[in-house]
Computed example of a mutant assay.
Amino acid sequence: MYELNVEKVNLNRERDVKEVKKFLEKFELDLDKDVDYTVVIRVDDEIKATCSKSKSVFKCFAVDDDLRGEGVSAKLLNALNDKLFDEGKYHSFIFTKPKNVEIFSGLGYKLIEKGEKVALLENGIYNINSKLDKIMKEYNLDEIKNRAALVMNCNPFTLGHLYLIEKAASENEEVLVFIVEENKSLFPVEDRYNLVKKGCEHLKNVKVIKGTEYIISSATFPSYFLRKKDDILSAYTTLDATIFGKYFAKKFNIKKRYVGSEPYCEVTNAYNKTLKDILPGFDVEVVEVERKTEKDSAISASRVRELIKNDSITEFNELIPKVTIDFLNSEKGKEIVENIKNSNSAH
């Protein structure tokens, strides 16, 4: 029996980070760039186990074979949960390999979904079902109406987004617009949510809802925010699409999911393809709508941000609804505009 002590890693020290990375390589893992807290267990000054967190998502978990059965997983999770409690957070996700599901299930975590390469579990003061029950009540949704859904980031809200929502509204009894809640965009979630809500006030059968951590979040779909295609992109997109079909579509009686065609972003393009592959299995039709264009170019939020960055006011005003124009002229909007202009990129 080893004497096992959990140590915090200094993520600002390159040598320490490299040491964790080298250990993870043995398990075909990497230390993700977004981790904000990492712990390790050493034996004779050598790393034998590690786990990290990014906000409330636990990942990059690995334990050497010679420490199996020593209660190492529990020690690592306790250390990360203690950190979360210090931050005032009482719910966590574990993003891990499917072979580890049994380990974490034995420690009180509940499986949300798993695929061939990744699994997502959760534990805390709520779960996905109680979260959806809360949405049902908060937005006064019945279980009878057939619904369509859209999932949008709206960074910022454009005429392209409005066109897609209006089309869905004209073709369905009720439409739910889920706004990506993850705050990794230049426009904060509260502003994105309010812009869409105000911009859709004329559509009486549309309800705008914050998407929760279960839709396109760091837990379900980290590649969406990394904006790059990698070896496990299909695993991430499949996980996110399956969670939507299994939980959201079933709970809210969603029969259609609308998406815009994607001429620019490889990640979103791959995501749309996965939705088409996965959602019909949950009795959800994926409706892909050709993007609205302006001067022969598809309207996109990234195009708007690029025009803002280049100070092309007349051009980007042609791509956004009045509600977004008014916001950009507000004090808060002007701050965001300056942030975009001063950023290294417009993403």
Rank of each mutant, 00 (worst) to 15 (best):
E290W: 04
A241C: 14
A270F: 07
L279V: 11
L275S: 01
T274N: 14
V287Q: 00
K250H: 15
K255W: 04
V284F: 02
K295G: 01
K276I: 03
F252Q: 01
G281H: 10
Y264N: 10
K255F: 09
T293S: 14
R305F: 15
N272D: 05
T237D: 03
D240K: 06
K250E: 15
G260K: 02
K292A: 04
A249S: 06
S302I: 12
P280Y: 07
V259E: 01
A270G: 06
I313C: 02
K276V: 01
V286W: 01
T268P: 02
L239G: 07
I313N: 04
F252C: 06
V289D: 04
G245T: 07
D283K: 15
I313S: 05
R305S: 10
R291F: 12
L279F: 08
V284T: 05
K250L: 15
V259R: 01
R305I: 13
V304S: 12
D283I: 12
K276T: 08
R291A: 10
E294H: 15
V289S: 01
S300I: 06
T238A: 13
N269R: 13
D311E: 15
D240S: 08
N253F: 13
K309L: 12
V289L: 05
D296V: 04
I254S: 02
G281S: 13
N253K: 14
E288L: 03
A301M: 03
A249W: 02
S261L: 06
D296F: 08
D277E: 15
I299F: 05
E266T: 10
S297N: 15
K273P: 07
P263M: 11
G245E: 10
K251L: 10
K251R: 14
V286I: 10
L307D: 04
E285R: 06
E262Q: 08
E290F: 06
T242I: 12
E290D: 09
S312C: 13
K276G: 02
K256P: 13
G245L: 07
R303E: 12
E262A: 00
D311L: 09
S312N: 07
R291S: 03
T274I: 14
L275M: 05
K276N: 06
T238Y: 15
V287D: 00
V304K: 11
I313A: 03
T238V: 09
N310I: 07
E288S: 04
L307H: 05
I278S: 06
A298N: 12
E290M: 08
S300W: 11
N310G: 06
F248A: 00
